[in-house]
Nucleic acid binder design. Structure first.
Lengths: 221, 221
DNA sequence: GTTGCAGTGCGATCAGTGTTCACACATTCA
DNA sequence: TGAATGTGTGAACACTGATCGCACTGCAAC
């Protein structure tokens, strides 16, 4: 049973996070100032420290939420796909990154120096959900027997075992995810500006080719 | 003819850059403090502004140098390769990133908000040298006729024309570079920590597979 | 029902940041 | 020699994240 105080605390906590997220979306993590967050919710800067021990803790919360949002978006697109679910998932990954560049940068950009996310911490588990969102279409293809063989390594087989996957599927999933991420991160961070104004067709054709090359694409009906 | 003053200025400028680079390598761009740089070369903080108009200008200089160093390292490994020059280049790319994580983060990590590198600025041209370092083995494969066909797009054909490449080779180069970058950036930024202590065999096998799948790998003699 | 305690918020304050400005010194050139 | 230009300094400003002691409030036990 939530006492009045617990409810208020929960509410204030959410308000802080919402204000921080708004600031993040405007100017990125570098422009996120605790003081600005505090005044935007009508609070003293010092008061924030009753809710978050420091700035990093607040960012960690935002990171966790960001991974969850990205994973959910990818899974949603995958499940709603008419044709190739893998391509749909990849496009959703890219779309979320382009729609939320500052949040994406917080997730996959420059890591905080000397900060190593604890192996079982909230950010690590949330991060793995993103990769996992790409897996189902790949296991389906594995059951169909169309999956291209990829050499697996010890590291990957343990990973596969942990996720209850056949090693071949894990190797393919790893290839696929890192490949998609490469294109998306370069584009989102502005390193593909020389490609011109509309790189969407290029990305789409890349993802389709990837799906076919790896044998993930479902047969045309 | 360099006057005495010009020589001194050049020297001080280099000293500042060297001190900044040292700080960057220790704690990353976030921990690079102008004041610390100033005192480390025995100068007043304000004096730095005679050489760099602001902090971003100093970072821009470091970025330019970083791209050049990375491109040079990749090119060196490619030219010195005994077997597959493309795989050697990819491994050099990864090796440089792992050896200089903070510099790599400065190049390809979270971009500065609202900062868009001018199309013909020093950072843009330096950045393109990195991608270009991967091209020669691909054009060789194109001449051999082993290159896998990749669907090209208008954006890529203009790029190919600008670099004097056949569009097919440009499409393959683009695929290859983004794929390599995906693996490297995830590993360098710590998102593949769950892979265990030694991901090098995995990376190597990935690069070899990429080279073969794209038809870049030279025939075994 | 009062008393005491934990939770909550605030103002003042500290160390540190990038940056600016007026001033002093050194170098260069006429 | 004198004027102009370049170079470096110390003080200051407006920020930042963070800490501390003091007040106030909700709550729970006596």
């Amino acid at each position: 049973m939530a006492t009045r105080r617990e409810r208020l605390r929960e509410q204030t906590s959410a308000e802080i996070k919402a204000a921080a997220l708004a600031q993040l979306r405007e100017g990125g993590a570098g422009a996120l100032s605790l003081r600005a967050v505090a005044v935007s919710i009508g609070m003293s800067p010092a008061g924030l420290y009753r809710y978050y021990p420091n700035r990093d803790a607040l960012l960690t919360d935002l990171i966790t939420d960001g991974f969850a949002a990205l994973a959910q978006e990818v899974a949603r697109a995958r499940d709603a796909a008419k044709g190739d679910a893998f391509v749909a998932a990849a496009l959703a990954y890219r779309g979320w990154a382009l729609d939320h560049p500052h949040e994406f940068a917080l997730l996959y950009g420059t890591p905080v120096p000397d900060y190593e996310a604890p192996e079982s911490g909230p950010t690590s588990t949330a991060s793995r959900q993103v990769g996992a969102a790409f897996v189902p279409p790949i296991t389906e293809a594995w059951h169909r027997g169309t999956l291209k063989h990829r050499e697996s390594t010890p590291a990957l087989t343990t990973f596969a075992a942990a996720m209850g996957l056949p090693p071949e599927a894990a190797a393919v999933a790893f290839s696929a995810w890192t490949t998609i991420h490469g294109l998306v991160v370069l584009e989102t961070f502005g390193h593909l500006a020389w490609l011109g104004e509309n790189p969407t067709p290029l990305a789409t054709s890349r993802f389709r080719a990837l799906s076919e090359d790896l044998g993930i694409a479902p047969p045309e009906n």
